[in-house]
Design a protein around this nucleic acid. Structure first.
Lengths: 196, 196
DNA sequence: CTCCTTTACGTACTATGTGTATGTAACAGA
DNA sequence: TCTGTTACATACACATAGTACGTAAAGGAG
């Protein structure tokens, strides 16, 4: 096969990423070999190792791409939710749930990533994306300074497990409905003084 | 080496399990080979494969043992918390947090297990242990029937991430304090009608 | 007590998959 | 057009999981 131009090279890199995203979503990190990703993308392992440092590097790229997509959804939802911090918090949280359950990204981001990349590293990376938004929103809404971090962690954990739970329910729409209702209660609890 | 008696055999099986528990807690599933577990336990790989079906079988045994220990703590705390369902719920949740953060079991149970065993299988197994207690407690406390499952998932997720968060804080005692306070708020939100 | 089967390992081998070293042809700038 | 670099493919080395087989003692059955 003759060598590709710079543009073509970028495209093969992206095709490899696409294949990896799909295969990882279907069967998880442990069950997907580099050789299989390469075959699926129509290249050899050499091409994969040229574009990505190693198996972990490829996975990191996959996770990063998925995470960025989710973060974009969250941010855009929060922005179009008005100026009130509470509304932004709610909108962002619900958008997160919807984004991570609509595509089949939950398994990769919520199950594989912490294990493969390592929980603390993954969390640190997340803290520069959607978790940062959450942290900020919680602070703005009036959560006490010393409780902002544990609240971020717990609310984030609640949403993550909600997403995984939704993903395995037969009636996705109903499950999403119920999960959103529960999530709203948790947010109520976190807001300093909520009536109702 | 001469063949061991039945009692001795049970002991080597347990030593293998101990070694696996420690090594997995320290470095995670991906970084621990069967050979290393065998060496640490003072046997060969043959012994490991005799007592456990394969690598996944060994890990499953490890996870099951840790999970059972946590479940015992939760049940005993809930039982000695009096008769009021709400008190049992609170006691159980706080006991779960303490149990899973006191030993170094958080990583194995919360990060590796869902990935290695598979999230849905793991959840199903958990649903017969501590998650079952939680589900029951939530139902007794008056959570609406159709919200019991998503509430179980989200509260469980909140506690899991709280545990992982605590595990990486330098000041464990303070972190635990803060996490418990946040957790109490979430429980408040879940109880049908809470004043205060 | 004496077979005799089963247990509890150890050893040696196979298979799979990761990572690396190397080869090569074409792109892209000087 | 000449050359360095890029974009792969190929071939190889190495680790580790799993399997097949060997063996000696344990623990009943008679």
């Amino acid at each position: 096969m003759p060598r590709a131009s710079a543009a073509a090279a970028a495209q093969t890199a992206e095709e490899i990423l696409r294949s990896a995203i799909r295969l990882l979503a279907e069967r998880g990190f442990a069950e997907v070999s580099i050789d299989e990703v390469a075959r699926d993308a129509g290249v050899t392992r050499g091409a994969v190792y040229h574009h990505y440092a190693n198996r972990l590097g490829l996975f990191t790229a996959v996770a990063g791409a998925l995470q960025a997509a989710v973060a974009r959804s969250v941010v855009s939802a929060a922005e179009s939710a008005g100026d009130a911090p509470e509304q932004q918090l709610r909108a962002g949280c619900h958008a997160f749930l919807d984004a991570i359950t609509s595509a089949s990204t939950a398994r990769t981001l919520l199950v594989d990533a912490p294990s493969v990349i390592g929980w603390s590293i993954w969390r640190a990376q997340d803290a520069q994306n959607s978790a940062a938004e959450l942290r900020l929103a919680l602070a703005e809404v009036g959560v006490e300074a010393e409780l902002v971090d544990p609240t971020t962690a717990q609310l984030s954990g609640a949403m993550n497990d909600a997403a995984l739970w939704i993903s395995e329910q037969p009636d996705r729409a109903a499950a999403r409905e119920a999960a959103h209702r529960v999530l709203d209660r948790l947010i109520d609890a976190i807001l300093p003084r909520t009536p109702r």
